[in-house]
Design a protein around this nucleic acid. Sequence first.
DNA 1: CGAGCCATTGATTGCCCTCAAATCTTGTGG
DNA 2: CCACAAGATTTGAGGGCAATCAATGGCTCG
Lengths: 194, 194
Amino acid sequence: MFEQEQEAHSFFLLLDGHVRVIKTTPDGQEVTVRYISPGELMGIAHALGRTTYPASAIAAIDCVLLAWPGHLWPKFANAFPNFGANTYKTVGSRLQDAHTRVVEMSTEQVDQRVAHALLKLVKQTGRKTDEGIMIDFPISRQDIAEMTGTTLHTVSRLLSSWEEKGLVKSGREKVTVVEPHRLLVLAEGRTGKN
Amino acid sequence: MFEQEQEAHSFFLLLDGHVRVIKTTPDGQEVTVRYISPGELMGIAHALGRTTYPASAIAAIDCVLLAWPGHLWPKFANAFPNFGANTYKTVGSRLQDAHTRVVEMSTEQVDQRVAHALLKLVKQTGRKTDEGIMIDFPISRQDIAEMTGTTLHTVSRLLSSWEEKGLVKSGREKVTVVEPHRLLVLAEGRTGKN
DNA sequence: CGAGCCATTGATTGCCCTCAAATCTTGTGG
DNA sequence: CCACAAGATTTGAGGGCAATCAATGGCTCG
């Protein structure tokens, strides 16, 4: 969709689908910053006084989106006051999300971080099924690892162990949370291991 | 100065001194989000559509600051267009900082994170001395640990080993970077250990 | 039906946290 | 001016969590 460091030519409104926003380190490792859901703005570098995109955006599944050239941003902000105000509220909540991530990475074990990540995805994009709440796009162990700063191996082990205990069900690029409440207990408390 | 979750009654402009912004987890661990330097705004919850402070602010040394009641924010933004624009640029750069932190926490070892933290502090608040560049306020091993998601013990070991190699000089609540360039190499590369 | 990716699982290693105790620095009060 | 207390720092020993290394098995799609 767009690439890190690239000239910020446009900004977008996601109508349908899911987009993964990633940052790539100089040595090639990728970190997932966030997932964008339908209805959200993206590529709003202009609003923050930037001229290049700070991250890359990749469609997690097929998407439908609107795009405007970046130079229209000031016009929009002037013409629709609510547009501007709303944007800054969005930016504020992203800043908060980022800080939450920092706190989590600083204080929590890997299993708690993975649990939190799953719960966030479920809350954001969950679709109810007869087995539980499913994350509504294909997501691999590798993807989850890039969200939580761990490896796909560790994620795989955690999901396997949670599946044994009936907390989740998972398959190829697919995760369903069966018991959100018990998963939350695991995410918050430092009580029961694995 | 103000406390996390507290009603955001005021916003501030720091004139002199240094302020530590921290978040506290439910179980009492503290994570340092950032340090504020003279000339920066703080407590700008209002600009982001919040009514409570998202973090706590504590003076790292004696400070001088201006405070305005929060309800004046909209007035300021209207009266001085540059004021608003500048604020959002500030918020944008903080968002970027936070994302950088997330990437660092996800991909780097502890020694790299500590090196990056020292370099950032030196760049932000450094004062030139005849031995190198000193961080311009009292900062303990514990403080550095809270910035980097590690323990004071590990920070102590790292500083000791760096002092042996002539990269830094440190004392009680005091750190001086002697060779910023070599420290940067250590922060970036994954070559030489300890 | 084979190629390519995704996932699972075991074994091993090592970084860094935890626990523990001694030493140093600074400020205070007698 | 000295003794002492409180907090900061150093350093050692040991252990655990998760990364790394390694190999196999399973799912999809062309």
